[in-house]
């Protein structure tokens, strides 16, 4: 089985993000970029499937600006076999929306014919949480989102999902799209020898136009603002007062 993992280049999670003065988005100039952490988990899971013999090949795909090849090299250094870069933008500030990404991925998948797509549940930049779901609809494949455990059993996958209030285990037919959550695994970091070897692994480059997908944005960003700073809390005198406040003011019990 071939596993395909889409990976996105996003602002590194350690960076304190700044909103651009004109409110059109966040500032990406001279900002450290890395692989979306959820995608790293997906890459790790795919490599583990290969290591236990459940998969033969791991292909990683990134869509966006040319610089996304750094993200692909990172995935190759972790242990992916081959990479595909679909160039869909020149400007780093142009975000490719989930539907366009899903359409591009579908075109790649039609060529590659993987048995499983493992994707991050969302990217930490826009938090859309939509690409995996849209992709499964376009492909007509089964989907399992927010996976915290994955077992391949013959022609189906057993997936434990993190849902409100607990865990749900479902069985889906392969091929399928699985989006992964934080607790699925602890991704490895690449060893230096593997980083050197990754230079020699194949990285194909295509464009969105090659695949016949229009990436013109459908959404309009109205404004971008920083979240409000945290406000000081209050002290309550007694448990009774706390319960009253939770009931009457916060409305949570």
């Amino acid at each position: 089985m071939k596993v395909l993992v889409p990976v996105k280049r996003v602002i590194d999670y350690n960076v304190k993000v700044r909103v651009k003065a004109d409110g059109s988005g966040v500032d990406l100039a001279n900002v450290k970029m890395s692989m979306n952490p959820f995608d790293e988990i997906a890459v790790e899971e795919a490599i583990r499937l290969k290591e236990k013999g459940a998969a033969e090949e791991v292909v990683v795909v990134s869509i966006g600006v040319k610089q996304a090849q750094e993200t692909l090299r990172t995935a190759l250094a972790m242990g992916a076999d081959r990479a595909i870069l679909v160039v869909a933008a020149d400007d780093v500030h142009q975000d490719i929306e989930p539907l366009a990404v899903a359409k591009i991925l579908k075109a790649v998948i039609d060529e590659e014919q993987p048995g499983l797509v493992l994707a991050g549940k969302q990217a930490i930049d826009n938090d859309m949480n939509a690409t995996g779901q849209m992709l499964s609809a376009l492909l007509g494949w089964s989907q399992a989102t927010f996976a915290s455990k994955l077992e391949i059993e013959g022609d189906s996958a057993s997936v434990t999902r993190e849902v409100d209030g607990g865990l749900q285990t479902i069985k889906v037919k392969m091929p399928c799209v699985v989006t992964v959550d934080l607790r699925l695994n602890e991704p490895r970091y690449a060893s230096l020898p593997n980083i050197m070897k990754a230079k020699k692994k194949p990285l194909d480059e295509k464009t969105a136009a090659d695949l016949g997908v229009d990436v013109t944005p459908r959404l309009t960003v109205v404004k971008t603002t920083e979240p409000e700073g945290r406000k000081a809390g209050i002290k309550v005198e007694s448990v009774d007062e706390l319960i009253k406040k939770l009931k009457d003011e916060a409305g949570v019990i």
């Binding site: 750094e70 990172t74 690449a190 980083i195």
Partner: peptide, 11 residues
């Protein structure tokens, strides 16, 4: 430069 950055990130 890209390779050095990857190495330092991994370290």
């Amino acid at each position: 430069i890209e390779q050095e950055q990857m190495i330092l990130d991994s370290v």
